[in-house]
């Protein structure tokens, strides 16, 4: 009973602040993931380019970024960058998150590009299409479709990882939770509520991704369901 009362208390006291903070989380995630997608696409191209130097550059980037905890990179970038140029906390956070997710997204794009049958590129080239055009018109649309499920996964990870920028003073959701629980001495209930906020955000995110996946899936007829099979039999 106390638990429910406390939660109601937290929502009435911090609900609005949490909602604002959730908006910061969403914008931070959106900015960083757009950045990450661009970075990911560029480095995926490097990897499939067949150009030795570009491949090695992409390998090095992915090795370094995947090889260190995000919180370390975040601190490193935050203090490293802010000693050279002045960035807002938000920008620094988004930049760090973008660079981090970019490495994973590069691998997702690379994998999906390479998963497209070689015959597709050959057929396109045999029709007189230059490499770039064949990539853009034939390979990438198919690869992109295949990338959506793992990309969605990575986007959800990105959303949750954004909580780490709380430690570089960005007042997003988790940062607000930290200060709220220091205020009200109810850490358990506070984190419970914040957890629900994240859950709601991820639910909305997943819903959008599912819709996108279905909409892009024009060429595939659905597998027959069990019911259909039984009817057929």
């Amino acid at each position: 009973m106390d638990f429910l009362i406390n939660i109601t208390d937290i929502i009435t006291h911090h609900g609005k602040a949490f909602l604002e903070a959730a908006w910061v989380t969403v914008s931070l995630t959106a900015v960083s993931l757009v950045m990450a997608s661009v970075i990911g696409l560029v480095f995926a191209f490097f990897k499939v380019s067949g150009v030795f130097v570009l491949q090695k550059v992409a390998d090095a980037y992915i090795f370094v970024v995947r090889g260190m905890p995000l919180i370390v990179q975040l601190m490193f970038l935050y203090y490293g960058i802010s000693s050279v140029i002045v960035l807002s906390d938000f920008t620094a956070g988004a930049l760090a998150l973008g660079i981090h997710s970019g490495a994973y997204i590069a691998e997702i794009f690379r994998g999906s590009i390479q998963s497209i049958d070689r015959g597709q590129m050959e057929a396109a080239r045999s029709l007189g299409m230059p490499y770039g055009l064949a990539m853009r018109r034939i390979v990438l649309p198919q690869a992109f479709k295949r990338a959506i499920p793992p990309l969605g996964n990575q986007f959800i990870i990105g959303l949750k990882d954004s909580s780490l920028v709380a430690y570089i003073a960005v007042t997003e959701l988790f940062n607000r939770a930290l200060s709220a629980q220091a205020d009200n001495f109810m850490p358990f209930e506070t984190y419970f509520v914040v957890g629900l906020y994240y859950l709601a955000l991820v639910a909305i995110f997943s819903f959008i991704l599912n819709r996108l996946e279905k909409r892009l899936d024009t060429s595939r007829t659905p597998l027959p369901t069990r019911k259909h099979k039984e009817v057929a039999a």
Binding site: D117, G119, E122, S126, L127, G128, P141, Q142, K145
Partner: peptide, 18 residues
């Protein structure tokens, strides 16, 4: 340009599925 004049048909069709 050369390939525009030389059509090719493959064993596995390689139609563009999208």
């Amino acid at each position: 340009k050369v390939r525009e004049h030389v059509g090719m048909v493959f064993q596995h069709f390689n139609l563009f599925p999208h």
